[in-house]
């Protein structure tokens, strides 16, 4: 039996040569062979969505995809979102709005939302809910997650007034200091 496979995977724009057990999922190879542990093991059954990565731009469950199918396809993980030291607008919005509570679902949420914004940079709250229907948040902080995606969409569009007021994020200013 041919137990190992050698393949070149295109991950976050880089070609990585990997040798992996043929029956391993994309999630296992991303975490173990590629060292990209941002993508999480969750239910392993397709119920939670925390293992979501983008394959050729589409959100897929990396726990239910064989790595052997991935040669020649473009894979994007949460590690590829930030540009140098600059967070992706979605990451910044999630951080500033507290849209991550325990944080375990966040990588999957970010990747699914990335695909949504690539297709539609002005989604309604319902469109965001539909797009994120496959990503469970066990802390049930959905409201902030949806707000964060709306805010990030505004930033991506270049809408200067996007997002909540400063007071909502950081509290109101001290009386007497002016605003």
């Amino acid at each position: 039996m041919d137990r190992y496979t050698t393949a070149t995977l295109r991950v976050n724009g880089q070609d990585l040569q990997v040798v992996f057990p043929t029956h391993h999922t994309l999630l296992e190879v991303l975490r173990e062979e590629c060292g990209l542990t941002g993508t999480k093991h969750g239910c392993e059954l397709g119920e939670c969505g925390t293992c979501t990565v983008l394959v050729d731009g589409e959100p897929v469950l990396s726990c239910l995809a064989l790595t052997a199918e991935m040669e020649g396809r473009s894979i994007e993980t949460v590690e590829g979102l930030q540009d140098g030291n600059e967070l992706h607008p979605l990451q910044a919005a999630f951080a500033d709005l507290g849209a991550a509570q325990c944080g375990y679902c966040t990588p999957g949420m970010l990747m699914t939302a990335t695909a949504l914004l690539a297709e539609n940079d002005d989604p309604s709250a319902d469109e965001i809910r539909t797009a994120l229907a496959g990503n469970l948040c066990r802390c049930t902080g959905y409201h902030k997650i949806i707000e964060a995606v709306e805010w990030a969409a505004g930033v991506v569009r270049g809408d200067a007034g996007a997002g909540p007021a400063r007071e909502v994020l950081f509290g109101s200013s001290v009386p007497g200091e002016g605003s």
């Binding site: 039996m1 137990r3 029956h23 296992e28 392993e44 064989l66």
Partner: peptide
Amino acid sequence: RDMMPAFELFRP
């Protein structure tokens, strides 16, 4: 260690 036991994979 594996999420699932090994199998022989064919990709016709």
